[in-house]
Design a protein around this nucleic acid. Structure first.
Lengths: 204, 204
DNA sequence: CGGTAAGTACACAGGCCGGTGTATATAACG
DNA sequence: CGTTATATACACCGGCCTGTGTACTTACCG
């Protein structure tokens, strides 16, 4: 009993420090925000010593950047790479709530949150947020083109703006706003895709 | 030279402390964000002693709340109370950039910024942000009704979401997004207002 | 088994932050 | 004029923050 019983089961928390840190980041940055989450608390939740954390990430800023980089766990693919859906339906699927079993609100888009909290457009995390958002808009534009939209780039940018609007408004109003965005998206999509040849019901 | 020459002109900064504090808040909270602005710096910019600041505002949270409350200096009226514009044009005017002489970006909507930075929906400032945003949506809905929209409440909420989306996206992308939002708004408005009697070109 | 990489415990530095105490000065008003 | 409300200078507190120094322990891998 010199210095044993470190972990909950007596087992050491061990090797996966980096992943545990990033996991705790995802949880705490979402629940409390970046600025209100101290490194001490973060390390406690991750069950990692502070020293270890700073051996993996030179600074909190670097951790925040990596946190953003590691965020999209196939979220983009899950929406865009669905061969079961027609392009038009894929565009609409981007506005569907993920697993809205409970009455929880869609969590604030972490990219917008980071941009607002860090408040410096030159911060690496802010730059990455910009890149990511641009990639999303490009993906939307590609799908719009696939769907036969007349101005796919424009539609992509419009839909991206709707997604950001829904995220921001959900946060500020404390009310789910994605359905509203989805309704707008439907209008825009139908307006942007010219009356197709033998397509299904477009009258509604 | 006992303790003179306090102010720049030798004149005391004097009575307007509260207003100077709120003025400095508007500047600093916009330029640096709320969390990154300390009370020391704020008082220095406002040319107010810290003691005076805390005699006017019991806490920084209270100052932030009052800062938000005092924000709308007729911004709402400037858009909505314009008898020179038809209701439909008033709706569109909400998306016009204010004095875009320079290439400056539209500053981040302070209500969204506060909601994200404070991160607590129960914070008085967050509550006020919600109220304000709701009032905006209601005003938009009223105008939409006046313009003859079929579902004015829905259109109001949609346009409000567009405004929030433009603000958030301008921030995160560091690119002006209000024109995109305005284009969407035009589509929504035209879609929501049934074909009027002698209206101008609607074909395009 | 032995070496090395990874992790740990813990204290502590230095800075900024929100907020207060105290004693003083000045403007406004009756 | 005298009172009172307003503002000032300035030091200070406790707390939290990011980040580091040091000495130690453990896991893995050849």
């Amino acid at each position: 009993m010199t210095e044993l019983e470190k972990g909950p089961q007596g087992r050491r928390r061990g090797r996966g420090a980096r992943e545990r840190i990033l996991g705790a980041s995802r949880q705490l940055f979402r629940d409390q925000g970046i600025n209100r989450t101290g490194m001490d608390q973060l390390c406690a939740v991750a069950q990692v010593s502070k020293r270890t954390a700073y051996q993996h990430f030179a600074s909190k800023d670097e951790l925040v950047t990596e946190y953003l980089r590691r965020f999209d766990p196939g979220t983009m693919s899950a929406v865009f790479d669905r061969p079961d859906l027609a392009p038009r339906e894929r565009l609409l699927a981007a506005f569907e709530l993920p697993a809205s079993g409970t009455q929880e609100l869609t969590p604030m888009c972490p990219y917008i949150a980071a941009a607002v909290e860090l408040h410096d457009p030159r911060h690496p995390a802010s730059q990455y947020a910009r890149d990511y958002k641009q990639a999303i808009a490009a993906r939307l534009a590609d799908t719009a083109r696939e769907a036969g939209a007349t101005h796919p780039e424009q539609l992509g940018e419009q839909l991206a703006l709707l997604l950001d609007g829904a995220a921001a408004r959900t946060r500020v109003m404390n009310t789910e706003s994605f359905p509203t965005a989805a309704a707008i998206a439907a209008v825009l999509i139908d307006n942007a895709i010219p009356a197709t040849t033998g397509d299904e019901d477009r009258s509604r």
